[in-house]
Design a binder for these strands. Structure first.
Lengths: 366, 366
DNA sequence: GTGAAAGCGCTAACAT
DNA sequence: ATGTTAGCGCTTTCAC
């Protein structure tokens, strides 16, 4: 280190002849490669980036030098010079949800080829945390920002609007998107579920979701949209919404459904259908019913959302609302790639990946 | 941009007087802040990094300028200068496994406070992919590398050994760790499961896991270790291992258990116990048994590994081998922080977080 | 407590 | 096809 610095002072950039031994124990730089290969740093840079302007013979010499030294380029330095970091920021509520993990999967697959790296953060459904994470990510200069949609803190929205990179909201279709959006209507998902249950003759329909924290910060906004849709559809049919229960904190899981079942049953013993904000909670409902010797679907129909694999395996298999999250990830990646290649007009894209009710055995007609 | 570059040529570093309007539409840099606050860039840098050598009054002026401009520091530039990127690389088989997601969670929580960002990659259980991901991550100059343990490609191991940052293998305890390790013995987990089933009087004991790909690249090595332990314990008790079935490709899930159950049953109709390499597969076994009107545990005992939440909810609840993956993540974070602060001797740490059998209702004594 | 100089390891732009 | 120059936006070092 010492040796290099002082030699820099005296020598032209590409003629530094600091002996290799002086660099022992240091990571080799592009200059070490260039000296070993007897070319300029630019040539090495071109080889690294596969720029096709290098004679095959030269290229091979360089590659040999790279291999010999075990050289690994430093992308932080490259980013600084090229003003392209190769980072895409992804902010998700949680990773412990296979559907969100599937989104990350779909994104990574497509982005890897274009040599982008995902910078993943998760908020645990807290808007405060979203803002904190966003600030943190911005310092890494992502070339695009992908985050779950619709609701953000004021300051976070301002940051997103102000930053000069594409912003994509996913997993919902906000009425007022910040910019681009790839998702589906959670509200319509809720309505579809209610309609499905009503059409099948259920009279005492309940629903379960998480509650928001007292300070309103921790909240599953997309789940809440589904509940809103569910309630609106109930009202549209002149039904009561008093069996729509919000309980516990997001994210919901199996235990949520198990805990909420007796509450609902106590509130309305004639309960004949339940919609859960997530399959995981719905599975919990089914399991609790098994324990209570309550027949699903004969005595109680159960419906979920998200089409998680466990729903296909339980008995009876779970009727649910399906959204293709992997496709959502891939579609987002495609949009991202268009945006980043500058091929698309800057006109905001709003992409609906749709949803559909999957009929399985946990709901029966009455 | 143009304006800035040319002015640079003529002016001393901190006396650049490029008008602010020339910078419109550009992200503000530290220099913009310094000019607005009427201080040098160094002072701004000190404020940003909370270096406590700045007069409160100065600090406030700087902070005001930062807020006015909406300045966000560029960590790529900072990394280059300070030679500290603040990145920790994490390579996992998959994110779609709540236990691995829990590790990522545990790690993030602790590392965020120290201002480190996790760079997450996943391999889908492919060693080739592990190597590719590793190369990719290395270019981001992580200050430490965390990856699932024990088996790596030669080239990957060489890269890990050669790189000058701490390497921590997790989720297993390799016989020959590359450096540090935080995990548990998958082999002992398998033995413990076999012992548990044998002690409870089972006579026809089966086990199910994934098979390795034909080219041997895609394989769940830690799961395979559990199977090895399971088989060894069976042999130790003079039992046959012919009901240890390897089927399908990692990662296993619910469907795996469902698919494998009839195969096992056909091979040995008197089958009275099954150990699955993962709770997810074990749950699939239980569900398939329900469909076949095979009583668990009366006719067949089922045991899993990993203590996933679903195992606590199914009926009967799943007996399993528990490992605290969140603690594993936190313990890893603690080691990481020690290592990175230089507090610890460079002596490799091998940390066993242990495991234990959780008795629930899916296994009965015969 | 603050500032100037030098340079981190790379690439854009412009030679040749 | 390859090389030279001049930074990218920060921080280190050392001076005052």
């Amino acid at each position: 280190m010492r040796a290099r610095r002082s030699s820099h002072r005296k020598l032209a950039a590409d003629h530094d002849d600091t002996p290799l031994r002086a660099r022992l124990g240091q990571r080799p730089t592009i200059r070490d490669v260039s000296r070993l290969a007897g070319v300029s740093r630019m040539t090495v840079s071109r080889v690294i980036r596969d720029l096709d302007l290098v004679l095959p013979a030269t290229r091979e010499r360089v590659n040999k030098a790279i291999a010999n030294l075990g050289y690994v380029p430093d992308r932080a330095a490259g980013s600084l010079a090229s003003r392209r970091t190769g980072f895409i920021a992804l902010i998700l509520p949680t990773l412990t949800n296979t559907n969100f993990a599937a989104v990350a999967h779909g994104l990574t697959e497509s982005l890897r080829q274009a040599d982008y790296d995902l910078l993943i953060a998760y908020t645990e459904y807290s808007l405060e945390e979203e803002e904190r994470q966003l600030k943190n990510l911005l310092a890494r200069r992502p070339e695009a920002i992908v985050l779950t949609g619709a609701v953000h803190r004021r300051a976070a929205a301002r940051l997103l609007l102000a930053c000069d990179v594409p912003v994509i909201e996913i997993a919902d279709l906000p009425r007022h998107p910040l910019e681009h959006a790839v998702g589906f209507s959670n509200y319509q998902a809720g309505r579809a579920a209610a309609r499905y249950l009503i059409e099948r003759g259920h009279r005492h329909i309940g629903a379960v979701a998480s509650a928001s924290a007292s300070d309103g910060d921790v909240i599953d906004h997309r789940g809440e949209e589904r509940m809103r849709g569910f309630e609106d559809e109930l009202r549209l049919h002149g039904r009561s919404t008093e069996l729509v229960l919000r309980h516990g904190r997001a994210p919901v899981s199996y235990e949520h459904g198990a805990a909420v079942t007796p509450i609902l049953l106590q509130r309305e013993p004639r309960l004949d259908a339940v919609f859960a904000v997530s399959d995981l909670s719905a599975v919990g409902v089914v399991m609790e019913c098994q324990r209570r010797r309550l027949q699903v679907p004969e005595q109680l129909s159960v419906m979920g959302f998200g089409d998680f694999e466990i729903g296909t395996q339980i008995n009876p298999a779970l009727t649910t609302v399906h959204v293709d999250f992997r496709a959502l990830g891939q579609r987002t990646a495609r949009l991202l790639l268009e945006l980043l290649s500058g091929a698309t007009s800057p006109r905001p894209s709003i992409i609906d990946v749709g949803l559909r009710v999957i009929e399985r055995a946990s709901v029966m007609s009455r």
